[in-house]
Design a protein around this nucleic acid. Structure first.
Length: 721
DNA sequence: AGCACGCCGACT
DNA sequence: GTCGGCGTGCTC
């Protein structure tokens, strides 16, 4: 007799489905989330389909343990998972894993207890009890932990009042993750241009797939405009995904949503606790959450009825996922939009070159927003470091320092931008010239004075600064070379001792929560000088800021990597845009050795199109993306000659296709990383070529990888080098 | 990705 | 004699 079987996809690094027996009486359909035994333990999986089972396998089939009480993954999400896996060559199971990120426990909801005033005051009054009763005097119920927090007492004080009969506990149903946002709560006043763009975006909702580039600087009202498209989707009763770079997901950003729609959006990022994660995931699947603001992984959330996708800061490099499955969230957002048949809005002041090309060709609609502060962008000036070289051991030129002093005197804030974490990027022995490198990577150890350690920015290796040179054994011989943000802080302290400075980098703002706190203090005027890495460039608003100093504009230029030039352009554009958003004429001073470099000229002249013109022409000439396609195959292993030999071997196995060009293997940009030697093969193909398919065929011919050798495949790599 | 199995070195 | 290192191979 034939048994009922289903094919199940599991969230593990496997590319295929597995057949299972369906127990008697259990109805299963594709998309159902099930529990099942897998290997030695219990796992979850998703019913992906049903196919005839090899009879030889039949008696080895295991049985599905049961169906989980969550909404099934819909056909469009399953199609998206399949598509992403096919395109990126990431294992299908690993792509599914991104869609099943509901944490360990989906099961039991924790009952939370609320308390409210219910009886006479207790016989014995204490100060702590008074504070609790004052807080609850309005008669409303609050959760026990909120009461303890807000009254500044320990939870046992609340318990004591319950025991005394003054308060009563109510087991409250777990609150819904979010109340429904109100599209009509606080409609903005829009300029005619904004209103027109808003109308365009809102009009696209409900009319199938389309892509629009919403093009405008930070002060142009981009957010207010795309919120109108969000409002349109809400009115249609549909869900919305707003993608943001992880680091931009701050309270500041979410507050803007709250001001417009009266409730907070659901947030989705790596900082979420498992509890909240599970709750949000379920609520998204059930259609109870209307709007998610999330980092790139929110692309795989199981929306029940998605109506709109917004990709904010679409050019941001953080959208590229580099570990596990390699994908670009902006590109995949467009794919999900196409599969879901919903509009996609890409928002940026400095679009990626890919998006700019698509807008110029008319594939994407462009909606351009003028700066609403009447075209008064910050006044920008280059400081030519060849003429204004700071003294040795300093990095701030005289003109920049005097501008900072004047700004301080006016009671306004200055922002110094330097994209280097730590104190100094290089530590040298002054006796023998020995350089302190990472033992696992081809990188210098960066001194971090706050942490009192030398740190590898590649692999995280850290060690205390040694007392003696490991090479010549001279005692205390080290000199820091070059600046990091921490070293600038020292310089500012010496030059402007009365200034209150803040260093803002991923070391000080660890995650959206901490970053939010620091940004709030900046907005409150707790600091005069903010010294930041690229973390300060990403869409945050600094209301008191009137001077931006770019300490080293040349960083990333002049290596001939087109992507580096694009990055520098975007970063500088964004950073100088932080100055003077409140109408007071802001200033930007840019320290550089090459004020005539095209990227800097475009920045200084505010001529964005000039930058795109030259960059697009250059890429077209040499068929770099988006005018050609790239795939990178990175071979790595603990033993350099073996890894290189393997890389050469697979390069020689490339399919013969006249359209394909195989370059390398060459040492990868980071030839040694985490103790692994890396060699990179680049495959180039024309636009429109099925590069994924070709690489997939190619990879089936790879010999078995032994000796710890790994091959990572990156379709559309970000670096062209 | 997990996880078990298995085959070699240093210890209660 | 056993504990445990991580290389290899399997998962319906």
């Amino acid at each position: 007799m034939t048994r009922r079987t289903v094919d199940v996809l599991l969230p593990v690094a496997l590319d295929r489905v597995w057949s299972y027996r369906v127990p008697e009486g259990l109805a299963l359909a594709p998309g159902d989330v099930v529990a099942l035994p897998f290997g030695a333990k219990e796992s979850v999986g998703v019913v992906w389909g049903a196919s005839p089972v090899d009879p030889k396998l039949d008696n080895r089939l295991k049985e599905i343990a049961g169906k989980l009480d969550v909404a099934p993954l819909g056909p469009k999400l399953r199609q998206f998972v399949d598509w992403v896996s096919t395109y990126t060559l990431g294992a299908r199971g690993m792509v599914l894993r991104s869609a099943l990120r509901f944490g360990e426990d989906l099961g039991v909801e924790r009952v939370s207890y609320a308390v409210r005033l219910a009886g006479p005051p207790p016989r014995r009054m204490t100060e702590a009890r008074t504070r609790v009763l004052d807080l609850l005097a309005d008669g409303l119920a609050r959760s026990k932990s909120d009461v303890a927090d807000e009254a500044g007492v320990s939870p046992s004080v609340v318990d004591g009042l319950v025991d005394a009969g003054t308060l009563e506990t109510l087991a409250r149903a777990p609150e819904p993750v979010m109340a429904r946002p109100d599209p009509d709560f606080a409609p903005p006043e829009l300029t005619p241009e904004q209103a027109q763009a808003a109308q365009d975006l809102a009009g696209a909702v409900g009319r199938g797939f389309s892509v629009a580039l919403l093009d405008g600087v930070t002060g142009s009202g981009k957010t207010a405009v795309y919120f109108e498209a969000v409002a349109a989707a809400l009115r249609a009763g549909r869900q919305v995904l707003v993608l943001m770079p992880e680091i931009a997901l701050t309270a500041q950003a979410l507050d803007r949503f709250t001001e417009r729609f009266a409730v907070k959006p659901a947030a989705w990022h790596s900082d979420l606790g498992t509890r909240r994660r599970a709750k949000t995931w379920k609520a998204v699947a059930a259609g109870e959450v209307a709007v998610v603001c999330g980092a790139r992984s929110s692309l795989f959330l199981p929306f029940r009825d998605l109506g709109l996708i917004v990709v904010d800061e679409e050019h941001d490099a953080a959208y590229k996922q580099e570990d596990g499955v390699h994908y670009h969230a902006r590109d995949m957002a467009v794919v999900r939009g196409r599969i879901e048949q919903v509009p996609v809005v890409l928002a940026s002041a400095t679009p990626s070159l890919e998006t700019e090309v698509n807008a110029r060709s008319g594939r994407y609609r462009r909606l351009r927003l003028p700066d609403r502060f009447g075209g008064a962008p910050p006044v920008l000036r280059a400081i030519d470091l060849r003429r204004h070289a700071p003294p040795k051991g300093r990095w701030l030129s005289d003109p920049l320092v005097s501008a900072m002093a004047a700004t301080l005197k006016e009671g306004r804030q200055s922002l110094l931008f330097l994209n280097r974490r730590g104190f100094a990027p290089l530590t040298l022995c002054k006796t023998c010239g020995h350089r302190i490198d990472c033992p696992n990577c081809d990188a210098w150890l960066v001194e971090h004075r706050f942490r009192r350690r030398l740190v590898c920015h590649q692999c995280g290796f850290a060690m205390p600064k040694p007392d003696a040179c490991p090479s010549c054994e001279a005692v205390d011989p080290f000199v820091p070379v070059g600046p990091g943000v921490e070293r600038l802080a020292e310089e500012v302290a010496a030059l402007l001792p009365e200034a209150r400075t803040l260093v803002l980098s991923s070391d000080t703002a660890t995650g959206p929560v901490r970053l939010s706190e620091e940004l709030r203090r900046v907005a409150d005027g707790d600091f005069d000088v903010i010294i930041g890495t690229q973390i300060v460039a990403k869409g945050h608003h600094f209301p008191l800021l009137s001077l931006v100093g770019v300490v080293d504009a040349d960083f990333g230029l002049g290596h001939g990597d087109p992507r580096a030039a694009e990055r520098t352009f975007q970063l500088l554009h964004q950073v100088v845009g932080r100055a003077g958003r409140e109408g007071t004429g802001g200033r930007g001073l840019i320290q550089t050795h090459m004020p005539d470099h095209p990227v800097l000229r475009a920045i200084l002249n505010g001529d964005r199109d000039a930058f795109y013109d030259t960059e697009i022409a250059a890429r077209e000439r040499v068929s770099l993306p988006p005018f050609g396609r790239l795939a990178a195959l990175v071979v790595s292993g603990p033993h350099a000659p073996l890894a290189e030999a393997y890389a050469k071997k697979i390069a020689s196995l490339a399919p013969a296709d006249p359209a394909l060009r195989v370059l390398g293997p060459a040492e990868a940009p980071l030839a040694l990383m985490r103790g692994r030697y890396r060699y990179r093969i680049l495959a180039k193909a024309p636009r429109g070529f099925d590069l994924s398919g070709l690489v997939r065929r190619w990879s089936t011919a790879f010999p078995p990888a032994k000796g710890g050798i790994q091959v990572e495949i990156d379709i559309d790599p970000q670096s062209f080098g």
